[in-house]
């Protein structure tokens, strides 16, 4: 019920975001343009509008949806697998690791595989190192994992800085803009890579959501309940890291969504991951569309959306820690 409502809101806001911006088309004009993907005959005055909708706003909105789904649902997966309501791709250092991988791919395009694969490798190394650092005697304390993630993230960020220093002008420019986290130079080629990848990853994760419930009870209990803990954790964390890496390689680091959305979904629907996953995915997409629309309309120039999500997200974590601390640990 709530999920249907949220999905409806997502569609409405995606459409509204098409209308909002420096150029403000009318409702009917926009509908006519959407209905004509091939474009208008030469000389038609709506050709400009067609370019704005089909080449700029639509891919941008679709990418925001893909990235929102990826970050929010991978946050829920990390939280369930590590039994830790405070982790998400950014805090665990996965985003920074993926960013380092992608930056390597940008600076040395000849030596490395595709940017996406490099991002996945970097993210996977980061999540594995954070987990290995935090694990003591078969236990992974909540705060230790957060600290290990911050540590790994800061190392990866430092490595990205070294790459910036080494990069030539063109690569430096590319890294800086992409790293700030934004959707400005989104093209259909990004959408074509990210959206199908994220939707496939999300579907596979959703299919394992009951297993994720059982895994959140701890390794021994999961095993006694017939869910192989190591095997399913590796699969789920790999899928979450994969969709995180895809979105990082397309639009840089966007923080906090993976923390805020699963938590909000849990407050509405309870902790069952079968409902938390789709709900937080939809809310993540919705939230990113809103933030991105703010980013491009708030002032004359464009603000990187990563800055907006951080400005909103950090106080949210503070609120969680101060008011909900007892329920969360």
């Amino acid at each position: 019920m709530w999920i249907v409502l949220a999905a409806g809101l997502l569609c409405a806001s995606a459409f509204a975001a098409l209308l909002i911006g420096a150029y403000k088309p009318g409702l009917w004009e926009t509908l006519a343009t959407i209905a004509a993907p091939q474009g208008f005959p030469p000389g038609d005055e709506r050709t400009v509008l067609h370019t704005i909708i089909w080449e700029i706003r639509l891919p941008r909105i679709l990418l925001a949806i893909g990235v929102g789904i990826a970050l929010a649902s991978s946050g829920a997966v990390y939280q369930g697998c590590f039994r830790n309501p405070l982790v998400e791709p950014y805090i665990l250092g996965v985003s920074a690791g993926a960013a380092f991988g992608a930056a390597l791919g940008i600076v040395f395009p000849k030596f490395f595989l595709s940017i996406q694969l490099m991002a996945f490798a970097g993210g996977a190394i980061a999540v594995f190192s954070a987990y290995a650092l935090a694990r003591r005697n078969g236990d992974t304390p909540v705060v230790a994992l957060v600290l290990a993630g911050v540590l790994i993230g800061s190392i990866a960020t430092a490595l990205v800085s070294i790459l910036k220093y080494l990069a030539n002008d063109a690569a430096l420019r590319e890294i800086v803009f992409w790293y700030m986290g934004g959707f400005y130079h989104v093209s259909w080629s990004d959408v074509r890579i990210v959206l199908p990848g994220v939707l496939t990853g999300f579907t596979l994760i959703w299919a394992l959501s009951w297993k994720l419930n059982v895994l959140s009870m701890g390794d021994e209990e999961a095993r006694a309940l017939g869910v192989h803990p190591e095997r399913y954790k590796v699969v789920l964390v790999a899928l979450a890291t994969f969709i995180t890496a895809l979105s990082v390689s397309a639009c840089g680091i966007i923080a906090w969504i993976g923390l805020m959305m699963p938590h909000a979904a849990r407050m509405i629907l309870g902790p069952d991951h079968r409902f938390v996953l789709p709900m937080s995915a939809i809310m993540g997409a919705l939230y990113l569309i809103i933030c991105d629309t703010l980013a491009r309309t708030l002032i004359q120039a464009e603000i990187p959306v990563g800055i907006i999500t951080s400005l909103l997200g950090a106080p949210y974590l503070l609120y969680l820690l101060r008011n909900k601390g007892k329920e969360m640990f």
């Binding site: 939280q79 369930g80 039994r83 830790n84 309501p85 009951w210 297993k211 419930n213 059982v214 959140s216 009870m217 309940l225 017939g226 869910v227 849990r266 309870g270 902790p271 069952d272 329920e327």
Partner: peptide, 17 residues
Amino acid sequence: TAFPFTVREVALMGRSP
């Protein structure tokens, strides 16, 4: 538990196998 499951949800996990 790490998350605030209900009694029914915890017991339901027993049906997993």
